[in-house]
Design a protein around this nucleic acid. Structure first.
Lengths: 273, 273
DNA sequence: TTGCTCCTCACGTCACGTGAGGTGGC
DNA sequence: TTGCTCCTCACGTCACGTGAGGTGGC
């Protein structure tokens, strides 16, 4: 009868809150019906409730928790407290946003890496080719250890200069022969900025002509690709130099999984001038 | 014994995941121990599990859900699908960020409003003063209705040009005498940009000299303040003109609560030149 | 009787955290 | 015996959504 008395269904339409939400807010004591029919248990709401609902919705849309909203509504006194809460909420959300910015950046990096790997697959001829490497800036750790320990080297470099990495990890091998136990190698990441950091060296790595071969498959089978590239160099009458590079276009841990049959590794043998 | 076999506690330190989380991931089938002692039920993890854990943590930090992570890890095949998921996640997070930007903006607006109201309280002398109003840009709705219906007018204007509002709402009264039922008034918001919108008029409102009095308390008591300001104008021998303004410095719904004793309304009577 | 609106439980969500209560080996 | 690490339930969180099963008046 009264124009300012709504059943739950009507009040739901007025406020944009679902009936279930109204039940819940009632149960929580956040938004009480102005009247409850004793025989049917039906809830009825008035204009004051509608006003309160508008405030609740506004605060909820600003991602205040229901207990927070309760408190804000209950203390109609303290303006300073309200201001504090608003500022605090702003800070909280700003912090979330900066975290999300980081996530987006990380996603973009992974996406770019995946794209680059796919393009490498598409572009790879899996034949020995001659190409010229540019000079690049790198961060690296040189070690004398087992080959299989290179992961630790990459981890150290990545930890130190992680955010400046701008390309695929690679290894420089300084031994003329194959050494399993006491190899002399350097784990490197190309970086986009001169970032000094503890325990890693940063320097420009000179480029130059080289033979290149992309190897597809698990690492233990790299030997066969080395055979192919060395034979090709030999046939063309070129002298190869040190250090040899292995660029890990696609491997375990870089992207998110490891199907060794799909690993891609580019072998680069510098041509002695 | 084996350097790559960890108890839960150790593995928790290695991975940075809590023991409870490791239990949970086990239960969910997301990250299985490499071995379980049949007699004690103790879980043991190896290096492969550590690698998987690193990937899980990376994906979790990018706010993928655990079911999503499951799927990403299970299909080591489809690169295109991974790229899709990454892109989709990026879009999702970017959308959240734009929502949060809105929230921050809304919070800033409310904060600024509260601050302005507090300053108005601090600055108000609660005496009749003479001041000069600047010309401002406003969006408004003019109505012929009951005074108490002005809320609807404000709602319409706010809905139409909400994001361009840059000041307190105010009313222009065009009647020389007090009218309850069939008053001629205009509900206005100052705006910062010429925003055309349906059903509201946008125009420059000219300024000029006026008498001003800040009224503190509920609206029904405005009459007393009108008496004071009119008497003051009379004493100073000035002719007042129309329309009269009422600026709602602080009232219900503008900020989040209504303690009518603290409402602030500024009455402005233009001085006829 | 059918349809509509309303009611009250009870359970699920998401990724764990928090106990409670107990075991096994040093 | 005390301390340590590990175990398995069971329940809580946050803001509701999703039924199930039932009522009352047109």
């Amino acid at each position: 009868m009264n124009s300012s008395s709504f059943s739950v269904g009507e009040f739901s339409k007025v406020t944009g809150l679902s009936v279930k939400t109204l039940h819940f807010y009632h149960e929580q004591g956040l938004l009480l019906p102005s009247h409850i029919d004793p025989s049917s248990g039906y809830r009825y709401y008035d204009d004051a409730a509608a006003e309160r609902a508008r405030i609740i919705v506004a605060l909820r849309d600003m991602e205040f928790s229901l207990p927070d909203i309760q408190e804000i509504l209950s203390q109609a006194e303290d303006d300073a407290d309200l201001l504090n809460r608003l500022e605090l909420q702003k800070v909280r959300i700003a912090q979330r946003m900066s975290r999300e910015r980081e996530i987006v950046r990380a996603l973009e990096q992974v996406i770019a890496g995946e794209r680059a790997a796919r393009e490498a697959i598409a572009a790879a001829s899996f034949r020995v080719e001659e190409k010229t490497l540019p000079e690049i800036l790198i961060a690296s750790v040189r070690m004398r250890a087992k080959y299989s320990d290179c992961g630790k080297g990459f981890a150290r470099v990545a930890k130190a200069v992680g955010r400046y990495i701008c390309g695929k990890p690679f290894c420089l091998y300084y031994d003329a022969e194959y050494k399993e136990e006491d190899a002399d190698f350097e784990t490197c990441f190309p970086i986009r900025k001169d970032a000094r950091a503890e325990g890693v060296s940063v320097r420009a790595l000179s480029g130059g002509p080289c033979y290149s071969l992309v190897h597809r498959g698990p690492y233990p089978q790299l030997g066969r690709s080395y055979q192919r590239i060395l034979r090709a160099a030999d046939e063309r009458g070129a002298q190869v130099a040190l250090p040899t590079r292995e660029v890990y276009l696609k491997g375990p841990g870089m992207i998110f999984r490891g199907n060794p049959k799909k690993y891609l590794t580019e072998i680069q043998l510098p041509i002695a001038s």
